[in-house]
Design a protein around this nucleic acid. Structure first.
Lengths: 137, 137
DNA sequence: TTGTGTGCAAATTGTTTGCATCACG
DNA sequence: CGTGATGCAAACAATTTGCACACAA
């Protein structure tokens, strides 16, 4: 009879279910320690549970993005990657040799000094391209 | 028989033909003064010559990129844009209000200081997101 | 039991390509 | 005139969505 016995708001945020596939996909990102493409994430998930579909990966990723667990990382000329959120502010390095995306801690600062007057900055993306140590000539 | 009567190298660089459509598309980028999406470029070209196909736009853009006339500009979360090349080093500002991509002259410098040891940087992309002056709250 | 998450396939969106034809050089 | 450029449609690749079913809660 007491509707509040479960202390649920009348129309609270949609509850998120804990599923095997969802946990696998979340783990893949947490373990990766670097941004993964959807294909990479799918391949890694398939190693654990061979019947996960790519649509499930995309839906999980989008759910994680809404939850703030995962952040999309767009690498110019390469495509969208995704990484576990929560780390401190950082940027990225894309290696043209091995195709891997590295995390670069820190920030050059002075970014907002570039803003034209009247413009308001909400976010900035910096992506370096080149060769990582292993792929350097 | 003198094969060199037309002074053509046996296998020189592929000649690029000057066509009406190509000129229109090139003009669109030169006049825009800002990065355009392929759709924007197509729409602007259609205003001048209503039968230009989107494939022609893409082929022209790719030719221009090879020639160095146009540079691709990837805006994270928004999609690939293209701009006339030749300007001095600059970066971009994407306005979430009007969807326009602005050119930001200059560079914060200190970028290479972010590089991990052994990494070699060939290029860097900086894209700011926010509200332009007209769209500011 | 209820409704969210999953799998699969079809639908969308952005970009490229095959082919017949056009027209620049 | 020969070959690159164009238009159109089909092919592709990446991502999203419709639908029936499975399974957390």
């Amino acid at each position: 009879m007491d509707a509040s016995s479960k202390s649920r708001a009348p129309s609270g945020p949609v509850p998120i279910r804990r599923t095997v596939q969802g946990e696998i996909i979340r783990t893949v990102f947490e373990d990766a320690q670097r941004p993964l493409s959807s294909r990479e994430a799918h391949e890694l998930a398939l190693k654990i549970q061979p019947r996960i579909g790519i649509a499930t990966v995309y839906r999980a990723i989008n759910r994680f993005i809404e939850e703030g667990l995962v952040t999309p990382v767009d690498i110019p000329g390469v495509g969208t990657h995704y990484e576990a959120a929560g780390g401190s502010h950082h940027h990225y390095f894309y290696c043209g040799g091995c195709g891997r995306v590295y995390v670069i801690p820190g920030c050059p600062g002075q970014i907002s000094a570039m803003l034209p007057p009247g413009f308001r900055m909400e976010r900035h993306d910096i992506v370096l391209h080149g060769r990582c140590r292993d792929c350097a000539v």
